[in-house]
Amino acid sequence: MRYGEKTAVDGLDLSVARHTITAVLGPNGAGKTTTLETCEGYRRPQQGSVRVLGLDPVADRRDLLPRIGVMLQGSGAWSGARAMEMLEHIAKLHAHPLDTGMLADRLGLHDCGKTPYRRLSGGQQQRLGLAMAVVGRPEVVFVDEPTAGMDPQARRDTWDLLTELRDDGVTVVLTTHYMDEAERLADQIHIIDRGRLIASGSPLELTRGGTSTIRLVVTKPFPDGAPASLQAALGERVEVTTISEVSLLVTGPADHTTLATVSRWCEEHGVLPESLNLGQRNLEDTFLALTGLEITGQEPGQ
């Protein structure tokens, strides 16, 4: 998928199993929205093919549209339409819509039901967008950054709703740049970066079952050969991954021995730790190890 000279999505090959929640995870600009909009039939891929429910999203768009629900990023409503009016309008375009009152209850839209769209908060607009995506009882819903701008309660409501959709037989595909969202919600995660798929798996697979980690950040760049000498000091039961010139990740049993070895190594090499974090390997670490980038697209430590 190219825009002019820039290739937004390149050689992306992924599939989504029915009745699961799949998260497409990646930093801003990774190509998540482009990927989703290609599935929704808004864009025609220059190369390769896309099938949703066995249909071509562009050629078979009219057959596909009633069967999918779409939540766009940002607006998508008349600025003067009231929240519930907008939801009811979308419901009327479908043959067997959900009860809009029930959806409004579930997503906390009743308080702002009579509020014109332009005066809704960002989180309320997001919840309305989600309601509009599911009201037609679709087989597949595509939700683009569903919880961006939501408060914690609304996020939990949204997660509960998406989980229930999956349990009731709906296939959910979402994009997110929140690691915790993907880790908590998704059955399958595809990590993409700069338009390429860099890893796929269940949260457990991607985090290697939550292996313990030590994350070391130092005040000035490591001396030459630092990772190798640390690896040698620690032995083969752990794995040292360089993340940047001032940080690295030790994956493996983070017990007394490992910790003592790391701090002794720091002393011997005249390296001053800025932080030394013990934790479990999470998606953030996976992502860092794969790309050398924080999910925000910044170099670590900035």
């Binding site: 009745h19 549209l65 009633p66 069967r67 999918i68 309008h89 009327k92 375009l93 479908h94 043959a95 067997h96 959900l98 029930m102 599911v134 037609g136 009882r137 679709p138 087989e139 229930e164 959709l165 349990d167 009731d168 037989g169 709906v170």
Partner: peptide, 22 residues
């Protein structure tokens, strides 16, 4: 797939005339 859940898929377009009137 239970077939009886609240959100169990039941997709479909409303008749075109009804959509246009709405």
């Amino acid at each position: 797939m239970t077939g009886t859940g609240t959100f169990t898929p039941r997709p479909g377009s409303a008749p075109l005339l009804r959509q246009v009137l709405a």
